[in-house]
Design a protein around this nucleic acid. Structure first.
Length: 549
RNA sequence: GGCCCCUUGGUCAAGCGGUUAAGACGCAGCCCUCUCAAGGCUGAGUGAUGGGUUCGAUUCCCGUAGGGGUCACCA
């Protein structure tokens, strides 16, 4: 009766691990290339934290000519959802990120280090589990869940550490022949790792982001193969990241406490440990306290939020990059036109404490990005958004493409482009008055600011159209004429002039142009009035002004 | 509770023993040949707390408090 026999009994038909070691050889990549992975469970949409991880992973692998792979961690089949994998691939793709290797939909994958779905890797995990049993570093455990629960309660009442370790590891030293007998009798069991660690010994680990961390050694005999035959996260992590030749494990810091375990697992399996990079998750403030941003409670955690609001994916990526490496912001200032991919991301510059997600700042980033777009791109992107979320806007944009592009071209395409759009859901309201039917439907009152006398307004509008407005004028001539009109009606040509002697005038040019602006748009604030008049044209201006006759 | 991590303005943060403690967002004010958006300038606002070490601590050490993570046959 020896370990080999026990191992053969538990895992009769598996390959030697040497088979897998040679099947998945070291990757032939340039010095310093980072191989990393995004490894979600297919339990629903990716959330911002996941996107942030992908943005960072993509940046790092691109800048080192490395590999980014998508591995699906579906070892908990209770939690799976329909089309979970496609949803992940698509939502990440929407942010401009694609994977070099891994799953591409529910069933297909690409790359030479697969399968990339853990539920398809059963025989691999079993091979390594068998190897551990043969080495005497794993063993079958027959404890029932009830037994385990009872043990935990006992430990709690004794105020000692909970878990399956030391004297509490009931089946750790079960004689092999007893184990074999129990298995032959059909008693249910799972496979546990046999830890050689001691809680009273310290280890120091260097995390790429967090720096040195000291922990007690792991001494828990954790489960490596569950009753369903699938591995636990910890075991799959070691086997997969080794076999996929992952160099950097970049994951949220909820995993730091598992580092001692993972280190022992890698060492016992004879694997080279990857570099660990634990980053702090994105937080949300609530009632003065910080907590991890949550898909259920926080709309901005779900990627669908950004689509619905019409915030460009590029803006979200840049904002997340900024959370990752705060020096990105100054790089972006210095390099306004370079693609984000040229920024050199550094893991060691990531913050060790979590950042609260700042939607206001995101909108500022977005505003800057959109300000660099051409009118055509704004047209295309906002139309695409409108098709999904705003039928009215879609109709407005589609009925005359050239006209819509002209509207988006107001104060755009010059050195100092207009910066007033932060998201596509903003634009309908800001261009409504450029469309006659929408302008007519608008029931708001005309809010003339300073000049409210009806006859005065009538005079201004009438005189302006009859004597002053000429569509051929350039902007300077156009403005000079408004000044001429102002002067003729006893308003100051210049605001300063008026301010110096307010009693000598009825008002100033600004008051006159406000009347024109409000009569034309029902808005007191609009972009450049000259351009608006150019686009609307004299005929339509006459119609709008005619209301005051 | 044990173990581990974190703590600079409202938010993101730079700094790595000597600084008037950067910068960005936000906020307030002023300026910019018409209103906005933008831009420019100015301003308010910061190292949780108590001890050390040191000529000198935001920076190093210890304690305290607060916050977070983790202690599953979930990842």
């Amino acid at each position: 009766m020896d370990l080999k026999e026990l191992a053969d009994l538990i895992f009769p038909d598996v390959k030697e691990i040497s088979y897998y070691e040679s099947k998945y050889p070291e990757r032939n990549l340039p010095e310093g290339a980072i191989v990393t992975r995004f490894a979600p469970s297919p339990t629903g949409f990716v959330h911002v934290g996941g996107i942030m991880q992908c943005v960072i992973n993509r940046q790092l692998t691109n800048q080192t000519n490395g590999v980014l792979l998508l591995r699906i961690e579906d070892t908990d089949q209770k939690r799976e959802i329909e089309n979970g994998i496609s949803q992940i691939v698509n939502s990440v793709h929407d942010f401009g990120i694609d994977f070099d290797e891994g799953m591409i939909n529910e069933t297909e994958e690409k790359g030479n280090y697969g399968p990339y779905k853990q539920s398809s890797r059963g025989e691999i995990y079993r091979a390594y589990a068998k190897y551990l049993i043969e080495k005497g570093r794993a063993y079958p455990c027959f404890a029932t869940p009830e037994e385990l629960e009872e043990m935990r309660q006992k430990q709690e009442s004794l105020k000692i550490r909970t878990g399956y370790y030391g004297i509490w590891a009931k089946y750790r030293n079960l004689p092999i022949e007893n184990a074999i007998e129990k298995i032959k009798n059909g008693e249910p069991y799972i496979v546990r790792f046999k830890s050689m660690g001691r809680e009273d010994r310290k280890i120091r680990h260097h995390d790429v982001i967090k720096g040195n961390i000291d922990f007690p050694e792991n001494d828990q005999d954790i489960v490596i193969i569950k009753a369903d035959g699938l591995p636990t996260y910890h075991f799959a992590h070691a086997v997969d990241d080794h076999l996929m030749r992952v160099t950097h494990v970049i994951r949220s810091d909820e995993w730091v406490s598992s580092i001692p375990l993972h280190l022992e697992l890698f060492q016992t399996l004879g694997f080279k440990t990857p570099k660990y990079c634990h980053y702090a998750p994105i937080l949300k403030e609530e009632d003065g306290k910080k907590r991890k941003i949550s898909k259920r409670k926080d709309p901005e955690a779900a990627v669908s939020y950004y689509h619905e609001e019409g915030i460009p994916a590029a803006a979200v990526c840049e904002y997340l990059m900024n959370i990752g490496n705060s020096n990105f912001e100054s790089w972006r200032r210095a390099n306004p036109d370079k693609p984000m991919s040229e920024f050199k991301f550094e893991l060691s510059k990531m913050s060790t404490s979590g950042a609260i997600f700042d939607t206001v700042k995101l909108l500022d980033v977005s505003k800057n990005i959109i300000s660099k777009y051409t009118a055509e791109k704004i047209y295309t992107d906002s139309l695409e958004w409108a098709k999904r979320y705003d039928a009215e806007l879609q109709e407005m944009l589609e009925r005359d493409k050239d006209y819509a592009i002209k509207v988006f071209g107001i104060e755009r395409g010059n050195v100092k482009p207009r910066k007033d759009i932060a998201k596509w859901s903003d634009i309908k309201n800001s261009i409504l008055y450029m469309f006659d039917d929408k302008f007519e439907e608008n029931n708001e009152e005309y809010e003339f600011q300073k000049i409210t006398d009806k006859d005065e307004i009538k005079t201004i509008l009438k005189e302006y159209l009859e004597k002053y407005y000429n569509p051929e004028d350039d902007k300077q001539a156009w403005f000079d004429k408004i000044k001429d009109l102002a002067e003729s009606l006893e308003y100051a040509r210049e605001v300063k002039e008026y301010k110096a002697n307010p009693e000598s005038f009825k008002g100033h040019v600004g008051d006159i142009s406000t009347v024109l602006r409000v009569a034309l748009t029902k808005r007191a604030n609009t972009p450049d009035l000259y351009e608006i008049m150019q686009i609307i044209g004299k005929d339509r201006m006459e119609k709008r002004f005619a209301k005051f006759n």
